[in-house]
Design a protein around this nucleic acid. Structure first.
Lengths: 408, 408
DNA sequence: GAATTTTTTTTAAAATATCACAAAATACTG
DNA sequence: CAGTATTTTGTGATATTTTAAAAAAAATTC
């Protein structure tokens, strides 16, 4: 696939500049040729040339003009998010979704399912295939050109083959070569850990559009991070980077399933938080929790804690506050190690923003090594549950925009 | 200085390819033109062209031929490490050194001093200037062309201005603009944290020559890391990345000077280890330590522990073993977060390799999340104390080889 | 010593951005 | 409302760089 050339080439220049122009318009919205020239430092004829090619391949469109003081009005260019489409597949620990998205990406059509890949892999795969075909038919019916399939997985992925690897919390039986199951549709497949996928989405459509160094801290059923360095996803030698959830934050702490002691994940995954809430529910002072538990038995979910906290239930607030404190510890570690421009907090925990924000802020203020010299920016994911599918689509988008899929 | 062009250029290609060829010869030693063509994927004429330019600028030399089965013998090219020189300045917490180095870098002439920058900044600076002039005179006397000054600092450096920043453990009074003190000699000055500098040295002259992703874990008086990503030093938004010593590994642990709790540095810096040794010395069972302490009072140094361990003193061995265990925790955290190809352990701790190696290996085996999928490579610094100066020189080298200093 | 092999160099060709300038479109001025 | 200034976009020649093809150089083999 790769022809292993490390030396640079004339065509490399062209490809890079074309990708640069395209992604600038994608990220900044409406731009004129002259603005592109100014931003890139390329000359106007070069820009004209590149832009015309991109218009020919239908990726850019001329959409009206903008006002200037005098002279010819600049023609505004916009990214054509309907030029191509992706099929996004996302797995959580309790189900999966398949969707058709445009290049923004927006979710145009989705199918959700509760089959767990964990429980009965064969049946789940059949179900997946069914839903996939469903989406694919919807897409072909309306003549959408599909760039590829993006898959977001809550666990590790094998670097070369994009196999979903066996892993105690998501797929404990054996590794799964999803690619071969979808091979017959002859679409390129890209896979990423869901923190990485979410991270990519923030770079193309979120808060990290113009930010080279960012860490996406994902705290939900699992705790992991997507790491953006120099505008590119950093995945490490074996696509195994970002497992911040399994860094020890308590060397003398209890043993984690991974073998380590006192992993961060043991303190700030939402399951652990719920366990604690259940404990407190029966014996604690929270009427809200006790009532919930009698009504719904063991069906206590994370969003219940948020509801409780919003209804001023002190216990719920305190539990979330503690979650914030633990997340804060993780964030400070990230800040000290990565010195990123931005940290985005995502996953279920982000839904509790209003209750964890303050303890996190406080934690940074008190504990950050270089707090006198740097001001870290902490954002919270704006995408809710959709981020799973949006991330999956962004994986395809990311490969496409790098010029890898050769459609422009 | 930067003309802010993000678009790519024909000259960019040339500069990159030239830098690539030069660094390949520097790193791999003797190479012929045809080999360079094969490695880079560039064509032979392109290589010839570039090589001839580099020979003209005296950076490459033709040195004999190598044997082949038949045909014309390839002319071997070698990197001329005496084409230019650097002046390296390194600070530790207890003194500084100034040296002249070639481009390997080898230390050709050095001056060491025990003035602490901390104690009496003004006098120390005068002393530094004196030694610097000494080295500079030695250099000019023999007509060496100096590329620039490299400075390695055991603390943070301000990104834009290369100011040495105030910091509790090295320079607690106020920031120091070393650049302006050396301005009159009209040489470019580059500064880096000493972990970063050491990391760079490993990329140019050590174990990471061909490795894009590496973490240099430095454990000595302080604990920090130099992070290599995609072949480049990763410094973060504000050159504050890599402070792994101040990641919390015990959220419930004692407060660190930095504000955080249970920082890694509190468990595996050598000072802490020595404190523990001193405690144990009087009341423990170690005859070696007790004798040492009565002879030398409070002059117990880290190398004494190593000596003791080498003389089979169980207490010394146990203390070092524990150090290894703590370092192991740090390494596992690094491996889980960065998934690097290589981790290099440096700093004073690396001197105790024979005693910490096993507990570190064991720690990784037991605690690494993806131990079934990845095999991390752990190296130990080979450079001893010289790494400070070598690192400082490598900072200059690194800028030069990137084509920034415009001498080729 | 002629044929063969391998490396290096030369020459011509292709690709790309740049430079200088022209054309187009609009606002401002009197 | 015509003319001018201003700004954006487009065009053609030029310079630079890599590439492709072929020649030259150097060494080995038969």
């Amino acid at each position: 696939m790769n022809e292993q050339r490390i030396g640079d080439n004339l065509t490399d220049v062209k490809v890079k500049n074309r990708a640069l122009v395209l992604s600038l318009v994608k990220k900044r919205g409406l731009l004129s040729r002259i603005e592109l020239a100014r931003i890139t430092g390329l000359t106007q004829p070069t820009i004209t040339n590149i832009v015309n090619e991109l218009i020919t391949s239908n990726l850019l469109q001329e959409v009206g003009t903008s006002d200037t003081k005098a002279g010819r009005k600049p023609i505004l260019l916009s990214f054509n998010n309907r030029a191509f489409y992706t099929i996004a597949i996302s797995f959580s620990r309790h189900g999966f979704s398949v969707a058709l998205t445009d290049l923004t990406p927006n979710i145009l059509f989705r199918r959700d399912s509760n089959y767990e890949l964990q429980e009965n892999t064969e049946i789940a795969l059949l179900e997946l295939q069914k839903e996939f075909i469903h989406v694919l038919e919807y897409a072909t019916q309306s003549l959408r050109l599909i760039l590829g399939i993006g898959v977001s997985v809550p666990g590790p992925v094998e670097a070369e083959t994009y196999t979903i690897l066996a892993h105690p919390t998501f797929l404990n039986h054996k590794s799964l070569d999803l690619r071969s199951h979808l091979k017959e549709y002859d679409l390129p497949i890209f896979m990423a850990n869901n923190a990485d996928a979410a991270c990519l989405h923030e770079t193309w459509n979120g808060v990290a559009k113009e930010i080279p160094n960012m860490v996406y801290f994902m705290a939900g059923e699992g705790v992991g991070a997507g790491i953006l360095i120099d505008g590119k996803l950093y995945e490490g030698k074996n696509k195994k980077a970002g497992e911040i959830g399994h860094t020890s934050v308590n060397i003398f702490g209890p043993r984690c399933v991974c073998g380590n002691q006192g992993c961060l994940e043991m303190y700030c995954n939402t399951e652990k938080i719920l366990e604690k809430a259940r404990e407190v529910a029966w014996f604690g002072e929270s009427q809200f929790l006790r009532q919930l538990l009698t009504e719904k038995r063991d069906e206590l979910k994370f969003h219940h804690l948020i509801e409780g906290a919003q209804k001023n239930d002190i216990t719920c607030q305190n539990i979330l506050k503690q979650l914030g404190q633990y997340i804060g510890v993780g964030i400070v570690n990230i800040l000290n190690v990565f010195d990123p421009e931005v940290v985005v907090i995502g996953g279920e925990a982000a839904l509790a923003k209003e209750f964890i924000e303050e303890p996190i802020r406080r934690g940074i203020e008190e504990r950050l090594l270089y707090r006198d010299y740097v001001t870290p920016h902490i954002h919270y994911s704006q995408w809710g549950e959709d981020i799973r599918l949006l991330g999956a689509a962004s994986v395809v988008l990311d490969h496409f925009m790098a010029g890898e899929l050769g459609r422009f």
